[in-house]
Amino acid sequence: MKELLCVCLVLLARPLAAAPGAQWTLVRSTLTYHVSHPLHQMEGVSHAARGKAVCAAGECEVLVAVPLRSFDSGDTNRDLHMQQAARGATFPMVTVRTKVPESSAASDTIHADLDVEFARETAHYKQVPFQVTTTADETRITGTIPATLSDFKIDPPSLLTMPIKNQIPVMVEMT
């Protein structure tokens, strides 16, 4: 005769063997998007990104998110127009998800497959290189996400009837 007994362990004190995987928290960040227009170049900067990595079984799942309205290009009208074009009031967050080997913290370069969610659309970027600089108490990651407007189905905004370029590379500096 076979029977199944379910025993639910309810433990107030978590045993050592159950310690969760390593976690990393984003302390500081600078995200900069670059826009090209026939008349001038401009950049929008945000320092408001937050992120976390949870590692288990040798792999880290990374999530970085930033409110779209935190980007500052130095011109309020341009920022509001960017938020409108990117449907930022309806979809206020930009998120980046990736999985990287836990050992990559010790590497000079990480090649990450990124899932970027922006303006309701999700774009996939394969093997985006990030430089890693590790010091005694922090790890700094820099790189550029080769984003384009068409990846997120955003019509290029125009100034004086001339549209901006499709490429909007996003420079990333995270510590």
């Binding site: 063997a17 159950a18 310690a19 969760p20 995987g21 976690q23 937050r50 992120g51 976390k52 990595a53 949870v54 288990a56 079984a57 799942e61 990374v62 999530l63 998110a65 409110p67 009031a89 309806t90 979809f91 206020p92 967050m93 998120t95």
Partner: peptide
Amino acid sequence: PGMPPPPSLSDLGFTRQQLTGN
């Protein structure tokens, strides 16, 4: 030890207002 849950937006400390569309 089990696999920890992947990070989510709610883990990052953003306010509800920041996360909600209008």
